[in-house]
Design a protein around this nucleic acid. Structure first.
Lengths: 202, 202
DNA sequence: CCGATACGCAACGGTTTCGTTTCGTAAGGG
DNA sequence: CCCTTACGAAACGAAACCGTTGCGTATCGG
């Protein structure tokens, strides 16, 4: 209230190290990506691996869950750009984004948490859903609606069921398919198969 | 080596209580079904809930993983009987078995473990896969092959991809679909949608 | 330079689980 | 009856984390 507090009234003293903050969050994500469940994460392990005192963590987050929420929130979802020409191409782009993300251990184990600890950490999952899942669902829904309008998809299409077919088939491959990298043309094959169906041409 | 050792040369002394053994395994499955990860299971919690001394557990299993392996192995997989008339009907039966199992907390959380802790407990998963997953996969594969032979399915069908489409769509609904029970006709709708495809009639 | 704050580090007491051991009792076989 | 083994209960020392505190140092504003 004196003369100028600039924008945020910087407090006196040494400012908090952004490097430490980044290291903490990165380490948290790394540990999760290595298959560690939320309940197995320990503040001490994060601190030691990040080269940081526990104090520095507790000064920023009051408990483990808050830290994990913030860490997951930094996983941005750079939605792939859709050409918007053919619905088939757009669906392939969307599914191929899933395929390539499945190869990254980080996204993969975040997905593990999403599927196995959803009930135990509802706040965490709610936030993660809104941030990472919803935008993709909306993009796919929009593409399917466009396909119905343009006649590229059947007019009586059950959109929710179609989304489950597309995403579910890809997820089934990432989770239960043969080990190793997924074939590069998997998205294309899935989209074509889902579009054509498994019954013979009528 | 004296006269008769019957079948298994019963040792002297008090025999082990089958009741205790059963209680231990049931309690283990219950705890897992309540959303407890393998790493969060504690021998003490199992012992106390089962009304059993820790000694009784350690006398039978040398560590937690061995116990969980045995517990999961007792989850038998009563494959649904397939009529073998129409491929569509058999696929519906197979998928509907998945749907109804998804409603049971026990099978559900076993699935959670399967998907999230597969890398951490590979022995455990290998055994579980062989016991519970493989028979179902074989049944579905057989049905699809029969459908190709009978002309009910397209002759150039990619069987693995078709299995991923069917199972993946159902799993997507169980995991990411709206909360609450799955609609009773979900299996039928999935099978019909997968067979017909989402593209318009050619 | 000085005061204030953050830093990494180490240690604290408290809790939980571990795997083991000891205890007195229960239940079979010879 | 006696020997053997299993039983449930309780307690043990060791280890891992918890959340907190004190320490000496580093880094900012004034």
């Amino acid at each position: 209230m004196t003369i100028q507090e600039s924008t945020t009234a910087r407090p006196a003293g040494r400012p908090r190290s952004e490097k430490a903050e980044k290291a903490i969050i990165e380490t948290t994500l790394d540990l999760i990506a290595e298959g560690m469940g939320v309940s197995e994460l320990t503040i001490e392990a994060i601190a030691s691996r990040a080269g940081v005192g526990k104090t520095t963590i507790y000064r920023r987050w009051s408990n483990k869950e808050d830290l994990v929420v913030d860490a997951l929130a930094t996983l941005k979802a750079p939605l792939p750009a859709l050409a918007g020409e053919s619905v088939r191409d757009d669906l392939i782009v969307l599914l191929d984004a899933m395929r390539s993300e499945a190869g990254q251990s980080r996204s993969r184990c975040v997905m593990n948490i999403a599927m196995s600890e959803a009930d135990r950490y509802p706040r965490l999952m709610e936030r993660f859903m809104k941030r990472a899942v919803e935008p993709r669902k909306l993009a796919m829904r929009g593409t399917l609606e466009r396909g119905i309008a343009s006649g590229e998809l059947r007019p009586d299409l059950d959109i929710d069921l179609a989304m489950a077919m597309l995403s579910g088939t890809m997820m089934h491959n990432t989770k239960w398919g043969p080990p190793g990298d997924l074939p590069l043309d998997l998205a294309e094959r899935i989209v074509d198969a889902v579009m054509a169906g498994i019954a013979p041409h009528s």
